[in-house]
């Protein structure tokens, strides 16, 4: 992989390493490029570092060393405001969903738009339509604790995509849903990708990977390997 910056790259890792406190490196010298509008699966066994790599992408962790560029900006040079503005451009679906308990499904999904300062009247229709699309139209006013695991997952996905992010990062997004809903969600990701969103999904689900034409990266023994496609150079 070339070390020169690629203007069209949404995510660039250059010799990135990560360690927690004084522990061993979770991974080292990882090089990664996700081009604008690409669709990538990240796979690997449990504990291989998939979630850690995703956290570096959505700015929850900082690398122990190496360089990370997001949207052509070096994250180590970003101030807090710039980091938060960058996060506006990233939709994240986590394994633990992180829905806010005292907010209804509607409010949880509308959260990124509300934080961005949009008026309620402007986004209500979009939120309602998206909830119907993910099959939660009838649970808009339900509280998260009354939802099943699959419903919570769909609400989390709806929240991640509602602001039409430039980069969508999902950690096991179909882990708690049945295959039909899983495929429907994958179609949603695919549709977003078709509209220009760069998608990075960490998953164990090989059937998911078969359903869609995408680059596949495997993280193994602290290094990143390309399984197919041209994204990886490690």
């Amino acid at each position: 992989m070339s070390n020169s910056p690629h203007i069209n790259d949404v995510v660039q890792f250059h010799r990135v390493a990560l360690r927690y406190d004084r522990g061993p490196e979770v991974f080292s010298d990882v090089n990664l490029r996700l081009g604008r509008g690409s669709f990538t699966f990240l796979t690997g066994r449990s504990g291989a570092g998939k979630s850690s790599l995703l956290k570096l992408c959505y700015l929850t962790l900082k690398p122990s060393r190496g360089l990370i560029n997001l949207f052509d900006h070096d994250i180590s040079l970003m101030n807090r405001q710039e980091q938060q503005s960058t996060k506006h451009r990233i939709g994240v679906v986590l394994q633990d969903f992180r829905l806010i308990d005292h907010l209804s499904v509607f409010e949880n999904v509308a959260l990124p738009l509300r934080v961005a300062g949009q008026m309620r009247a402007a986004y209500s229709q979009d939120v309602t339509e998206l909830l119907q699309w993910v099959g939660l139209g009838h649970r808009m006013e339900a509280m998260p604790q009354t939802l099943s695991g699959g419903e919570q997952q769909r609400a989390a996905i709806a929240r991640a995509v509602i602001a039409k992010p430039d980069l969508l990062i999902a950690d096991e997004p179909t882990g708690n849903v049945d295959p039909i809903i899983g495929r429907r969600l994958l179609r949603l990701f695919s549709e977003m990708n078709r509209m220009g969103t760069t998608v990075l999904i960490a998953t164990h689900d090989t059937s998911l990977m078969r359903d869609i034409q995408a680059d596949i990266l495997r993280i193994e023994d602290g290094t990143l390997h390309r399984v197919q496609g041209e994204v990886f150079d490690g």
């Binding site: 807090r80 938060q84 503005s85 506006h88 994240v92 992180r98 806010i100 959260l111 990124p112 934080v115």
Partner: peptide
């Protein structure tokens, strides 16, 4: 704290 974590995740500034 959990709510703040989610707000930070969806891009809320400190001032917000």
């Amino acid at each position: 704290r959990d709510i703040i974590r989610v707000l930070v995740q969806v891009g809320a500034q400190d001032s917000f």
